[in-house]
Amino acid sequence: MQEEQTHFGYESVDVNEKVGRVREVFRSVAPKYDLMNDLMSVGVHRLWKRYTIMASRVKIGNKVLDLAGGTGDLTRVFAGRVGASGHVVLADINEAMLAVGRAKLEDCGVFNVDYVQANAEELPFDDHYFDCITIAFGLRNVTDKEAALRSMYRVLKPGGRLLILEFSKPAYPLLSKLYDQYSFHVLPRLGQWFAKDAASYKYLAESIRMHPDQETLKGMIEGAGFERCRYTNLSAGIVALHEGCKI
């Protein structure tokens, strides 16, 4: 019996193979992840994340899940916002990314965070626990996105909010062409020069193109049960912030 297929960038692979291959990509890029984010986006990723934090409306006492949180950029800010009475969990499927995130946050004096290695498709948390879930630049790497969205819905409290920050479809054809040139010609070279890994950054560029566009992802979020779903294009649609509420 043939295994079910999914995509790994532009390559078709068995569903059971993708998780391991994505894990290897992020194990490879983890040591240079923050540097490469700054180089690839010319620092603009910090503005996208700042917008996400503002949109989250996280406050003192909240419980927050930073899913696929990597090196903890969002977690660090959330930990300050929720205070001692709140709870922040940095979760990632990749142990190397979690290790880098933990070391980075502890170096910054952030200790009120729990670190959990978890698959977004099967979150190991109680029902109706979190006030807010964020997933920044992680959903496109999930094999079964619908299962992950249902899992996020389950662990959110009624009234809780989901925010998905992800690369998306540029709003203008000319921008889309320029973005393709950058992604497939410049990005792998940056990966080779600064991280000694062109292949992983080639995969990351391909994974962006295989990710659902703005309207498709909005429909998927609604299909998982979320309401009041909307998205905001950032940088002319190169990135979009999707939001949904659990009523």
Rank of each mutant, 00 (worst) to 15 (best):
I60C: 12
L241E: 06
E11M: 12
G160W: 11
S235P: 09
E95W: 08
K177S: 14
Q214L: 08
E24H: 11
A118N: 10
K246F: 07
L149V: 12
D213V: 05
G159R: 10
S207G: 07
R27L: 02
F184M: 03
F184R: 04
S176Q: 14
I53Q: 07
T232M: 11
H185I: 00
N141E: 08
S207N: 11
E166F: 05
L178R: 13
M40P: 03
L163H: 01
V186A: 14
A136M: 02
T232L: 13
F226M: 09
E17I: 09
W48T: 06
V186G: 04
R27A: 15
A198H: 09
K246C: 09
I93T: 07
L175R: 01
S235H: 08
E146Q: 14
A148T: 04
I135F: 11
R21T: 01
G159K: 03
L204S: 02
F137R: 06
V25A: 11
A120D: 07
R57V: 01
I135S: 09
H185P: 00
D144F: 01
D114T: 13
I133C: 09
F130K: 10
A240R: 07
E222K: 12
K246R: 14
F226A: 09
K169G: 10
G138M: 02
A84D: 13
Y51E: 13
V77Y: 06
E3A: 15
M210I: 10
V100F: 02
R57N: 15
V110T: 13
M36V: 00
V13D: 12
E106I: 00
N119G: 05
V82C: 00
M97G: 05
W193I: 12
S200K: 09
G109N: 09
F184Y: 15
E166G: 06
I221L: 00
Q117W: 08
D126F: 12
S85D: 15
N94T: 12
S183G: 01
L123I: 02
M36F: 04
N233M: 13
M220C: 02
Y129A: 08
K177Q: 14
I135P: 08
L149W: 05
R150M: 09
D126R: 13
E11D: 14
R81K: 15
D180I: 08
S12Q: 15
V22D: 10
R76C: 11
K218I: 06
V142C: 06
A136I: 01
D38M: 02
V142G: 04
G43C: 06
A198C: 09
V113E: 00
R46P: 00
V113L: 11
V88G: 08
F130G: 07
D66M: 09
V29N: 06
V113G: 01
A118Q: 10
Y203C: 06
V15A: 12
I133E: 03
F167C: 04
C245V: 14
K202R: 14
L149T: 02
A30L: 07
K104N: 06
M220Q: 15
G69H: 02
S56R: 05
Y179T: 05
A205N: 02
K157G: 04
E227A: 12
D34V: 06
D73R: 01
A79Y: 04
G69C: 03
V22L: 05
M36P: 00
L162P: 07
A99C: 12
R140L: 00
D114M: 01
G70F: 04
D92K: 05
D126G: 14
I164E: 00
R209D: 12
N233F: 00
M152D: 01
H185C: 13
